[in-house]
Amino acid sequence: MRTPLRAFRSTRNALLSAAVAIGLVVAGLVTLTTAPAAHADTQICDQYGSTTIQGRYVVQNNRWGTTATQCINVTGSGFQITQADGTATNGGPKSYPSVFYGCHYTNCSPGTNLPAQLSTISSAPTSVAFTYVGNAVYDAAYDIWLDPTPRKDGVNQTEIMVWYNHTSPVQPVGSKVGTANVAGRSWDVWTGNNGSNNVISFVAPSAIGSWSFDVKAFTDETVSRGLAQNSWYLTSVQAGFEPWQNGVGLAVTSFSSSANIGGGGTSGGTSTGGTTGGTSSGGTTGGTGSSSCKVSFTPQTWAGGYTASVTVSNTGSAAVNGWRVGFTLPSGQTVTSAWNATISPSSGSVTASSLAYNAQIPAGGSQSFGFQGAYSGTFAQPSGFTLNGTSCS
């Protein structure tokens, strides 16, 4: 018998909407348990309790579908479910413990300028690593929220789910409408409505433990299917679990997310040189030499880490089929994850290679990729950019 995913996600939304009308409940929701940035582990058992990590992301307990106790242990890089009492009985999951970037029910991650209009976002790189257990009924998924307005509270109009894993009998709300290749992977696509918002779900045919991707790939697919418009706003990017039964041991071990605005500026925080978010320096840079290619590099940095958006433009008269962008990382820098390209090795002189879906750069066109890295000391930008061995300006 089919068990629809979050057929009763509206229960949570209805409860929160009812809270607006009931003063005592509102007081309970408004006064979320929000601790300072977590350096030591933080235990959260409050229904909607939350804290921040890395000075950038919010981790939330978000127990909305049961009255039974749920606790999470928040680390410096994610969280683990440590207590998961009760069993979901209304068709929907017990909760959605998760980590997010952006704004969700007035709770905004530090420094973010989400909501941001889709048409202004050049890329929105994100990465997550999950730990799974074998004694629970759950799904592990992203929630990506879109709305016609820059909403920071309440229910958004369209919810994108990216399912990394799920156990039987859990399945998405609605019905399967086909398959799609998005961000270089194949997905089963489901669409439906949970009573409060539209839902489009991209379900991996087999479990994914960790993966980095560009949120724009999924928002573009959603727009193409008529469930959003480019004038709408991305309000938050969330990753976590929806448990129906048990769940102890499920964990997010790492998470990153950002939004690059316009020509590569990044949302959130303060900075110099055309990016926002963290404490970055510099704007865009490239190599020197040939006029047949141009590379722009836009970083977003914080203490010890950064993300980078890289665009390689073909300024020549012939298409490039299969591209390799070479560059040199400064001493002390390493690449920890990448999207829209594979990067090897992780330090020193590295090469970013195209994937099957973005291998061609037409004359006058461009391709973009990104990566997350770590650094020691003072951040410095890479140098010596080349395209298939030819220096770029």
Rank of each mutant, 00 (worst) to 15 (best):
S256A: 14
S309V: 06
N90L: 12
S168C: 07
A180T: 01
Y375P: 03
T11G: 14
C45Q: 03
G92N: 04
W244H: 12
F241A: 02
G322D: 03
S271M: 09
N388D: 11
N13L: 10
T179E: 14
G326V: 03
N197R: 15
S175M: 08
F369D: 02
F79D: 10
Q372M: 11
P362Y: 03
P299R: 02
R56L: 11
A183M: 06
S353V: 08
G364F: 07
A359F: 00
G265H: 09
T120C: 00
A40I: 00
Y57R: 07
T106A: 15
T235L: 10
R185G: 09
Q238R: 12
M1S: 14
Y138M: 04
L15K: 06
P172G: 10
W64Y: 14
T222D: 08
V295Q: 09
R9T: 11
P93Q: 07
G278K: 03
G86V: 04
S98N: 14
I53G: 13
T351N: 13
V99K: 06
R185M: 11
R6H: 09
G265K: 10
Q47L: 11
W163Y: 15
Y357C: 03
V295H: 06
M1V: 14
S296W: 05
A374Q: 13
E221R: 06
S296L: 09
V173K: 04
T279V: 13
Q367I: 08
P115W: 02
A303G: 15
N340I: 07
A84W: 00
V155Y: 04
C103S: 13
S10R: 15
S254T: 14
G264F: 05
Q54M: 11
S210H: 10
I261R: 04
P382M: 06
A308K: 03
P345N: 00
L146A: 06
V173R: 05
F218S: 07
S206L: 01
